[in-house]
Design a protein around this nucleic acid. Sequence first.
RNA 1: GGGCGGUUAGCUCAGUUGGUUAGAGCGCCACGUUGACAUCGUGGAGGUCGGAGAUUCGAAUUCUCUACCGCCCACCA
Length: 1029
Amino acid sequence: MGNLSDSIPNRFDYKQASAEIYAAWEADGCFQARVNPDRKPYTIVIPPPNVTGALHLGHALNNTLQDIQIRWHRMRGFEALWMPGTDHAGIATQAVVEKRLKEDENKTRHDLGREKLVERIWKWKDEYETRILNQLRSMGCSCDWDRTRFTLDETCAKAVRTTFADLFGKGLIFRGKRLVNWDTFLQTAVSDDEVFHAVTKGHFWHFKYPVINPQAGEPTHVTIATTRPETMLGDTAVAVHPDPEKALNTVEELLREKLAHVPEKEKEAVQQQIDALDERRRSHLPLLETLADMAKRGAKLMLPLVDREIDLIADEWAKPELGSGCVKITPAHDPNDYEVGLRCDLRMINILNPDGTLNDHAGSYEGLTIKKARAKVVEDLEELGLMVEIEDREIDLAHSDRSKTPIEPYLADQWFVKMEQLAQNAMDAVTDSRVKIFPERYAKGYLDWLGEKRDWPVGRQLWWGHQIPIWTKTFDSAEEAGNAAATWNAHTDAASGAISAAVESPATVHVCVREEGHATEAELEMQGFVRQEDVLDTWFSSALWPHSTLGWPEKTEELDYFYPTSALITSRDIITLWVARMVLMGLNNLGEVPFSEVYIHPKILDGAGETMSKSKGNGVDPIDVMDKFGADALRFGLTWLAAETQDVRMPVQFECPHCEEAINQTKKNRQLPTIECPKCNKPFSTQWAKTDEDKAHPRGAVISERFELARNFGNKLWNAARFVMINLEGFAPQRLDYTALPLEDRWILSRLSTTTQKVTDAIATYHYSDAARLVYDFAWDEFCSYYVEMAKPRLQDPEKKAATQQVLAHTLDQLLRLLHPMVPFITEAIWQQLAQFGDVRSLSGKAEDQKWLMRSDWPEAELEHQDAQIETQFASFVSVLGALREIRSRQGIKPKETVRFTVQCAPEIVALLEPMQTYFEALAGATCEGLGTSFGDLQIPPAQVSVDGMEVVVDLGDFIDVDAEIARNEKLDANLVKQIAGKEGKLSNENFVSRAPEEVVAKEREALEELKKQLASVRESLKRLRDSK
RNA sequence: GGGCGGUUAGCUCAGUUGGUUAGAGCGCCACGUUGACAUCGUGGAGGUCGGAGAUUCGAAUUCUCUACCGCCCACCA
């Protein structure tokens, strides 16, 4: 016994052991999945992390949950494939690299050129991909690394071009004008979700356009207002409501309806709005009516500064209740105006160059930046006497998330994917449950979003990405174009294979070539076709991920075997962008959904409820957590917190590198370059350290104490295993007759069986937190606190030792399996040590033939071990134990002192407790002097506790603190009186007695009797205690 | 403006189909280092379950309204 306790340290050296174990697993091919007809496949494709930067805690959660499913299924006998990889992340990555280029070398991408920039981004990608994959390894992720893919690698590129050509051929790719969010710094369109809004101070300019040849009774000018006066250069109309009176009435109706429902305190504000309408009828309506009539007769206005004739139009977009009631229409630079432009067939004049300066449509303003143009337009309008008023106003301005510069709405040619049918197919897959989403409520967002069936703009004006495989040429006539298209289309089924062509009215031909580097490409270029510069939206390649990673469009064995994949585990913010697109692309390319289940996990927020991010400084790095607590603690901690409905709130601390003090992070201190530790008064640096002075201090990690629970649990498990192994010397496996086992063995086996069943169920339904809690409680409270404690005396008894060893070995072995998916390293480390006691550890006597725990079998719940009666019996034991401990504690009995006790209880409880008698000694330092009996008359009154229909009486002799007992009993007395009153009240309520189910009433009666008994007992005790004084 | 989620102990969260005295971890208080574990053990204190109303014999749990927090979508001359 001595050598083992010396050789097993009482701490798990997670740093060294984890690395060694992982390397050994990998070397032994434990992560590999192969096409294997003898097993059922289980597949997860990783949500490929962006190569923009290192992984954060959200990724850690995402990947932990995936690894749990993968490891669990692997143990259950599935051929489990976890497909790893990373995402090129289009604009995000290019923006990061461009920013770096600007900072380090003061160069723009145009200084470098496309090729050089892309080269730089590849370098960045290599660096971060390595970092990311190593982070995943440190976390213990059991990915099949041989299959690692990148969304921009050749396999994926082929899938992208094949898909694009297919859609093009089906007529689902088309070209259209579209207002895009133009980032003038990066000179690219950014998607709506890459835009953030910020309120800035600005102005609201009111100015007027002259009416051309106004007729009698008509105004000479029309007043409009805008926050962006320079856009007037692109105006092609001014709109007025066709029926302003009706519009005002409608508004009033709505307001009156609101008035009826709105709370009292808001009524006044609504009433004011209604009054304002009356005022407006007087002040504006006659003019607006006139203008509406003018619009109908086709009146024209003169657009000042550029002297362009524009229409006065009637359109409902103009709101008579706002501003002057007239609105300028700039279809090429405003989303709403664009809609008006389409409706009224207006000219769309783009006044901007890609770099944000004005182009030749702006006349004399050409070449100016927006800012300068704005100032000059205002100045010139003032000079012409057309400026009416300038208001100060706060403006909610769209900014690019990537460059932080203001967005300019900009009309550009874009490539679109027609969504109508694709979206419908993806919706059907969820409605008919071919794809199930957990938690279910997220299906709504998915369906709503797809239901809009908005065409998908897939082009990005970037250099980093899959370049659109289209060559374009504009011919002199539609006829020529038609001929060219027909010629190229004729090649489609010929040797050159994969081509299709389409004419964009009037005379532009687009040719899409499927094969990369095909001779056709050169041929097209020779004929004057030019390849589209744009690259595809990064989500286009991500949408193919579940099948492109398996080799599609090749008909690979892997594709056949592993597709459709089994589960997709991801975070809620990309349900639409990614999940929906994967479903529709999977259906389009393979006719099958890409996965059958989608699990959406919570997000990780900091202590203030904000999302974590590097730019806020509240981001916890999984590496720091692993350094401090270990990978298992990171994983278990996250699993523990991953409950169904809630996001994970995780208060964050700085850790002082000098004294390890944890300093709560606040909004104030989280962006400081250095912080002084309040405990040891030494400074440390943070991620914000920029100056040499700041950087000289050692770095304080950002961590969260949230992981202590998991770290402690690992330690508990390790030491329980240590205890078992120290006591396993001379262990000889044997077949035990379950029915002949003593109560404590049957109890722990019953609990093990129940736990196994529940944990299995929890993981299967993605109730991760439940799974963690179940196994934590079993391991700590049941196995350690009771079974191991009870095993101690038994191991000293030669008669009982062997059976005890067997049950200990079995339970530990099974427990390790249950825990392995969540905490793979520590369980594997223990399991390897346990192996030295032979390969037969299970009660069944079956020899374990796997070298690695991660490759061993998941436990089956032994249903015949579940025994409710045994569990009740054990509960009585625990109650008595608790009573004894409480008395000891209350009375301040020293641990070394043994006390004597009896339990007064019914005969059937005596039978329950009988076999457990000896354990009171070991677990509570109390000797049982009788069950079902009392001490008889003691000279000094005993301490007494009544629980579950039992009276636990402890003879403390002279040691008793009578006053303490009296105080306690008095408190109990009062409490019982209160409860009894409550129960009596309930039972005297005729309604309750007659309407509640009989069993509930009976239960209440029983409880009342029990309470009364207790009260009697307490009072008797009190009397004796008082008498003794 | 539309939708979703949350509000339970000082903190972070559980709470199954409504039914005894609402649980856990951390923190706090008291005691404790006898050979698995002080990253531990034993005991204790601490909650009128955001508010109002309704249904019911009975509500943390169901329904309605409401407040606050968070997220998503739309819109903002």
